[in-house]
Structures are given as C-alpha cells and as structure tokens.
Computed example of a mutant assay.
Amino acid sequence: MRRTSFAQWPCSIARTMDLLGDWWTPLVLREAFYGIRRFDAFQEALGIARNTLTDRLRRLVKEGLLEKQPYQTDPVRYDYVLSAKGRDFYGVLLVMNRWGDRWLAGEAGPPVAMHHETCGQESHAEVVCAACGEPMTSENTRPRLGPGYPPHLAQRPDVQERFAD
C-alpha cells in the first residue's frame, strides 16, 4: 500500500507528521480542536479512508482522548468530543505546529496562524520551565530518572550512565 504524503499540505502539523509516522491520529485531533465532531465531517476534512478513520476514532475513544456522545438514535450516530485528556493534547499540537512553521513552511510563511484570544496577538507555542518561566532547550535541559522509572532498570550501568549527573 502506497503511503500518502502530507509534505505539501498547508498545515505544519500535517507536514511534521509526514516525517514522524502515523499522521492520522494527530490530524484527527487537530480537526477535533477545529470543531469537527462527526464522522462524515472528519472524513471529508481529512480525505481519510472510512476504515482508517474508524480505527483512529476507536483508538482515541479507547485511550480516553475523545468521548462518544449519541446525537441520533435510529440509527445510532455519535459526536466525537474531546475529553479533558484530549484537550490536554492541544499543547502537543501547538508545539508540533511551531516546529513545522519554523522548518517546513514555505516562503509565503506559516499556513495557519495561531491567535491568542487572551492578549489578542498572533503567537506561537514556546516550551518554558513551569518553575521559572525560562525557555527549555536541549542545551539547558537534561533528563533525570523520575519516581516512576522501574528500579530494576535504574540499576543497569547503561541507564545509570545515561542519567548520570
């Protein structure tokens, strides 16, 4: 089966997902953030095969990012609504969008602008430290073992080396 390329789509999220792998799941979520709620609307907006969309929606519901809410009883039809867990994914999409705007946008600029309603400005996502508010970059941030790291793996020499101070 030939893979569809999203490299030229007018959406930085789509372009980023073209590089990362399964692009449909974040794009379904993107459409949910744009206000799409119904199967046919998702399918029309994305041009996605019905079986693929069914699979992605089923997975998003199972994982708790979307909730099914019936809007018709005969036959039963559902709206797919973002849950709290799904709404929390918005920051991920914004960061992906920012990366795509920087590295994949054409000469005309970003295909979609993000308008921050609170201040009324066009803006973009920044990853900042929750404690001090300063930007977090690969140069000033490093991973450390967290409380949920499995103790039996934390004792391995390669893991200790990776997370050494």
Rank of each mutant, 00 (worst) to 15 (best):
L65R: 12
V81R: 14
K62E: 14
Q69P: 04
M114K: 11
F6V: 02
R15K: 15
R156Y: 13
M1W: 02
V159T: 09
N140R: 01
H116F: 15
R58S: 07
T4R: 15
P150D: 03
T118I: 11
A105W: 08
L94G: 11
T141Y: 04
S5D: 15
R2N: 03
F163N: 10
R37L: 03
G148Q: 03
W24H: 13
R142F: 04
P10A: 11
L60V: 11
R30K: 12
V112R: 06
R142Q: 11
F33V: 09
C119I: 04
V128M: 01
R156L: 15
A113C: 00
E44P: 00
A154I: 07
Q43N: 04
P143F: 06
P110G: 03
R102E: 12
I36G: 01
L82Y: 04
P147R: 15
Q155G: 10
A113R: 09
L145F: 07
A108M: 06
E44A: 14
Q72D: 10
Q160T: 00
G120D: 10
V28Q: 05
D79S: 07
A45H: 11
I48P: 00
P110Y: 06
C11Q: 08
E117M: 09
N97M: 01
N140S: 08
F39W: 13
F89T: 05
V81M: 09
E117D: 10
F6S: 06
D79T: 10
L66V: 05
N51W: 08
S5T: 15
E63M: 00
T4N: 10
G91C: 00
V95L: 14
Q72Y: 06
R30D: 12
L153K: 13
K85N: 12
A45E: 10
E139S: 06
C129P: 11
P10W: 03
A130L: 07
S138R: 10
Q160A: 13
R59Y: 05
T54D: 07
R58F: 01
M1F: 00
V159K: 06
G106L: 08
T141E: 00
Q121P: 00
D88C: 05
P70Q: 07
K68W: 01
R59K: 08
G109A: 03
L19E: 10
A131S: 11
L65I: 00
N51D: 08
L145D: 02
Q72E: 13
P135H: 07
L65T: 02
F163C: 00
L94H: 11
A7V: 09
G109C: 09
W9K: 15
V81N: 01
T54E: 11
A105R: 09
I48D: 08
P75G: 10
Q160H: 02
Y149C: 05
T52F: 02
F163Y: 15
T16G: 04
T54M: 03
Y90D: 04
R37T: 14
T73A: 15
I48S: 04
R38N: 03
I13R: 12
R2C: 00
R162W: 12
Y34M: 04
L27V: 02
Q155H: 07
D74E: 14
R3H: 11
R162E: 02
Q43L: 04
R38H: 12
Q121K: 12
Q160R: 15
